[in-house]
Design a protein around this nucleic acid. Sequence first.
RNA 1: GUGGCUGUAGCUCAGUUGGUUAGAGCGCCGGAUUGUGAUUCCGGAGGUCGGGGGUUCGAGACCCCUCAGCCACCCCA
Length: 443
Amino acid sequence: MPRITPRTLKGFRDYLPQAMLPREALIATARDVYRSYGFSPIDTPALEYLEILSGNGSDETDKQLYHFTDNGGREVGMRFDLTVPLARFAAQHAQELGLPFKRYHIATVWRGENTQRGRYREFMQCDFDTIGTESAASDIETALVIHDLLQKIGFERFTIRVNHRGVLNGLLENLGLADQALPLLRALDKLAKIGPEKVAAEMERTAGATSQQTAQVLELAALTGSRDEVLAALRPMVAGSETGEAGAERLSEVLGGIRAAGVPEERVELDVSIARGLDYYTGMIYETFLGDLPGIGSVASGGRYDNLTEAFTSQRLPGIGASLGLDRLLAAMEELEMLPNARTPAEVFVPLFNKEMLGPLLKITTDLRAAGLRVELYGDAKKLGKQLQYANRRGHRIAMIVGPDELAADDCQLKNLADGSSKKVALADAAREITLLLEGGDD
RNA sequence: GUGGCUGUAGCUCAGUUGGUUAGAGCGCCGGAUUGUGAUUCCGGAGGUCGGGGGUUCGAGACCCCUCAGCCACCCCA
């Protein structure tokens, strides 16, 4: 019989249990943090009318869009982010939602772009957004959510870099370069990566800026120091520009709020060079870098946009939001050895001695589950050594050994698979004892 | 989409200027007196050399195409 080669498409992946367990854990953390701020879950279809998706983005996103004609002759596209669907969703349901509206959306998106490490054609986004308000509070909250998220995931050393588009635009305005903002900011965003000389060269080449102008832009971007120092230094540079002054003012407010919330000073940095490639950000911008792995890039980023829904409705809906870089974070955690090596969600393993033990063990494991534990009962009465070997490889943490002897004595042996230690406890106390063991050796 | 590099057992790789039966470590499976794993000892299975075509007496090695991965550009998560 001719066989079909099992394979996956370029840029698409299978997830084995070992990869899926931390993935789900991360998603659960994100969901919990979002909910703790009152963001509500929504979902939208994977497929949209092509015009919904392609009208919005740039030529670039159009090229990356997966699209086809469906069996009813409709032109259809697969969503390439969660922001455009949010815009459509908000425009369509504005009346029922009420404003401001805070939602989170964790879902798969597709982009037909070239693959690279950490870049796939199918990947998951974990977005949260607040729409219908321009308040500084929502700007501040966005940073707080990112901060909480990273902390809950288990990172100690990370920096949220913030900036305001108005500051950059204000400076460009003052330099008479406002109409070339896009190519200039795109070049500026590469500062950390390629250095000031190359950025200047690119600015002169793509935006027609003079070397004097680029020097001034780079001077702003080169500002370093504490937030207050940077803020004080940039104010005169944007003076006279309405957007620039407003941007600096908002920046100051947001940084003050973040400080008031108790976020450690070193976790948030004012970095005037970040621009974020997207052309729709109009206000605050956020990027997040890991102290132990800065090279992996931003693991959570976002910003404020003025008019999310303008393609769909005349109603003005400003918004702010950010997105967690799930794949990058997982890659980072793997590299930093923050991921457990388990291939099973069940912490407790119960070997089967012989067929006669099956009935009693089914009862015992059912009781353990009722007590909130995750328990796997082995199905074949193989040699005990084999069963323990299996348990060890799978990553179960505790083996609960109940053989005929234990059953007769109404007790059991709890074996810690990490260190080999074991103790005898009464069956009636097993659930409690296991819980204690799990809390104790938590690594 | 453009350019560069790579592709040999489940994994990490070795394989001399193209020459006969393609190797190692780890992993996997089995065993070391029948109720205790991850350490030790013994044994074993497993590879159409990513796929297709070509050059050659002969190709894992050379050429072309294709698929996939990595890197850069682009863009971004």
